[in-house]
Amino acid sequence: MAMLAVAAEERPEKGRAICEGDVVIVYERHDRMKAVTVTRNGELQNRFGVFPHNEWIGKKFGSQIVGKNGAGFVFLLAPTPELWTLALPHRTQILYIADISFVVSFLELRPGSIVLESGTGSGSLTHSLARAVAPTGHVHTFDFHEQRANAAREDFVRNGVSGVVTVKVRDIQGEGFPEELAGCVDGVFLDLPQPWLAIPSVVRSLRSDGLVCSFSPCIEQVQRTCEVLSKERFADIRTFEVLLRSYEVRHENLSTSFDCSEHSSEQKSSEVSTKPPPHKRQRANEADEKDKPEGGLDAGDTNGTSKTVGEESKKPQRQLKPVIARPYPETKGHTGYLTFARQATLM
C-alpha cells in the first residue's frame, strides 16, 4: 500500500485489501504504532501476542486483528503522512503535525508544485510535502549527513513516495541549492542552524511570488533570518508559532450534595465518604494519564482481551456521569518559530 492515493479508476473493485509488500501501520494505541512491511510468512510480536502476516493478507485496511495467543488485538491501518510521523524512527528532532500542516498550507503547495527542503532529517515533513505536490510536482530534499539521506531515501521508496521525492546529500548552508532549479521553485523549507546563510540561494531558486519558510527554535536565529530576508527584498515577512493542545475526555461525577449539616443525615454523609478521598481518586486518574499520555484513548482502543456485545451491559451505568473534557497536563511548549516570506514580484 503506497502512501499516495491512486486514481479511483485504478483502485481494485473490492476496496483496499492488504497485499504482500504493503506497508501497514500496526496500531496498538494512539501513542504506540509501528510501520510494518507485510511479507509472506512474516510475523509481528508485541505485548499483545504473535501476529503472523499471512493472516493479514486479504484483510481490509482498518481491520482489527487478534493475537495468536489471544492476549489482545491491534488494528492494521493504511499509512498516511500523519501516521508515519507518529511511527517513524527518529534520526533527528522531527516536525509534528501542527508545524507540518501549517508549513504545507502557508507555502500554498498543490499538485504540480516544485518544493525544496533542507535538511531532510527524519523525513517527517517530506512525506506531507510529497502528498501535497503529487502526482505532477516534485520535492527536492537535501541533507548534509549521508547516512541520514540514505535512510530517508529507503523510507521514501518503502512508502511509495519516491516518485515525487529526490534526496541528495548537500550542505545547503555552504553550497546553496543546485543552480539547475533556479527560478522555477514554488516553495522552500529551511530547517537549518544558520538559515540566513541559505537565503541568497533561496532568492535564486524561487519564482516570482514564491514562498520560503524557515523553522528555527531560537529567537536569535529568527531575528537574523528576518534581517537578511528584509535585505533581500522579500515581501510579507511573517513569523508564527503554532502549537496544539490535546484534550482527554472522561466521565466525571462532581458531587452535588454539598451537605451543610453533616450530622442531620448520616445517610448522605456516608455516601460522600464512600467515595475515595480526593487525593487517592486523583492519583488513580493520574496513573491512567501516564499510561495514555497523548490524544484520546478510546474505549474501543483499550487493549487486552477482545470485547464484544457482552460488555454492553456495563455501559448504561457509566453513561449517567457527565462527559467532561480537559487538556492533558503537559504539552509541547515550543517547537520552533516559523518565518515565512514571499519572493518579491519585481517590476
Binding site: P217, C218, I219, E220, R245, S246, R326, P327, Y328, P329, E330, T331, K332, G333, H334, T335, G336, Y337
Partner: peptide, 20 residues
Amino acid sequence: LREYQVLPSRTHPNMQMSST
C-alpha cells in the same frame, strides 16, 4: 503561563509547558 530560556543565542520558550 510560559517560561523562557534566555541565554545568548539560545533564547526560546521552554520546550515543555503545562497545558492549563
